[in-house]
Amino acid sequence: MAENQSPKTQNSSDEIDLGQLFHLIGKGFNAIFRFFLRVFLYLKKNIFILIGLVILGLVIGYGLNKIISKRLKIEVIVKPQLESKNYLYDVINEVQSNISAKDSVFFKSIGIEKIDFSGLEVTISRVVEDVNSESDIKYLELLQSFENTDAISDIVRAELQNKSSFNHQITFYYKNAEFGKDFVNKILEYINSSKYYNGILEVYRSNAAYRIKEDEYLLKQVDEIISNYTNSLASKSNNTVSERIVLDNQEQVNIADIFEYKTGLIRDIETKKLELIERTEPVSIINLGQPQEEHKSFFGKNIVLIPFIFILVFFIISILLFLNKKSKTLT
């Protein structure tokens, strides 16, 4: 008898539990609905205040954007020679630090007697060049042909030096037009006044000039060898002529190697002449730009920031007032 009644009792308890569960779910949905209803009523009650705050914020933001500070700037493209890139950045940071500290003694020491600090600023950044992936792939394929040769080390070294010496842009900001140009020239002179790097450049230039002189002497000898070979070739036009040249030491040299050696000498002379032109100062000036006017907004372009701040402050005040009202009921 008791065994027959136990399943019915269990089923009725399950039905009660399910009923309580659905009741709790219903209460949860009602609570969420009431919350959204209260938020809607709150927004409806304060809609005109919120709209007024948005309009006021937009007007104030628009007005602040109209407050524009004008100053001039000169952009200078430079290229550090040797390993003077870190030196260049250190000097620019030094100059900017002295501008921030308004250290007129420092600027007098580099020849700037009367300095106008208003709007004065110096910045530096690397000039990012466009990368052509297709040309880079072709270049890598070309390098594979030099694999396991002595030339590959020279090529890699030259490429590493080239990649580590990007062009850089120094930007000078100022307000006084007459003072600005003189300031730029004095700072550039100060950058290139390093005795250490100027001493190294002098050695480089001396070595390059000596290398050119020696290469030209060797090139003259090679031209004489080729000329003698050409003359002998003309005199023995009816006979078979060897492709090798016998020198005074009885060693035979392939004529193709002679021409390749001559080409290498010519390229070396061209490279050293370019070094004499480029390496005249520790930091070469690629382009000295003309003064241009810069317009800088006082507040920036984000005019929606002020309306957002106004609305946020309004909500915070409303929450604090609500909490204060509830706290009084508890006491």
Rank of each mutant, 00 (worst) to 15 (best):
P307V: 01
V246E: 15
I51K: 03
K325L: 06
L321H: 05
F107I: 02
N231G: 11
V246I: 15
L312I: 02
A151Q: 09
S297N: 07
T263I: 15
N249E: 10
K301I: 07
I200Q: 14
S109A: 02
S118H: 09
E243Q: 11
Y173H: 04
G63N: 11
N302D: 15
D90P: 01
I200D: 07
Q81T: 04
V105C: 00
E214I: 04
E214Y: 10
E294D: 08
L50Y: 04
I152P: 04
N324L: 14
L50N: 03
R267D: 14
Y197E: 03
T123V: 02
E216P: 05
E281V: 12
G199C: 05
E281I: 02
I47D: 02
R244S: 10
I124F: 00
K114G: 00
I124Y: 04
Y139M: 13
R267P: 00
M1W: 01
K163A: 11
E94Y: 03
I110K: 01
K236R: 15
I269S: 08
I137W: 12
I200S: 05
K220P: 00
V283I: 15
Q252A: 14
K114W: 04
A177C: 03
D257Y: 12
I77V: 13
I212L: 05
R267A: 13
S284T: 12
N249F: 12
V91T: 02
F146Y: 13
Y204H: 08
K296S: 10
V54H: 03
G111M: 07
T123M: 00
K262W: 08
E75P: 01
Y197C: 00
E270Y: 10
I319T: 03
N65H: 09
R279V: 01
N93Q: 07
L142F: 11
H168N: 14
T329D: 12
R34M: 13
Q161F: 10
N65R: 14
Y196R: 13
S242G: 07
S118F: 08
S104F: 06
V304P: 02
A209R: 01
L50K: 02
G300V: 09
L330H: 10
A256Q: 14
D182C: 03
A101P: 01
Y62F: 15
D90G: 04
K296P: 02
E83I: 08
N176F: 06
N231D: 14
L120F: 03
N228V: 02
I306M: 05
R38A: 13
L41N: 12
S84D: 04
R71W: 01
I316C: 03
S327V: 10
Q144N: 09
P307K: 06
F22L: 06
K326G: 07
I170R: 13
D136G: 14
Y173F: 12
N254A: 12
G111Y: 06
L58P: 11
R38Q: 06
L305I: 07
E121S: 13
L160S: 11
G28R: 07
I319K: 00
Q144D: 11
F40A: 13
V203Q: 13
L321M: 09
L219N: 07
F36G: 02
N176P: 07
I67V: 15
T263L: 09
T171G: 05
V304R: 01
I112A: 03
L143R: 10
N287F: 06
T331N: 10
Q10S: 10
L330V: 12
T9I: 09
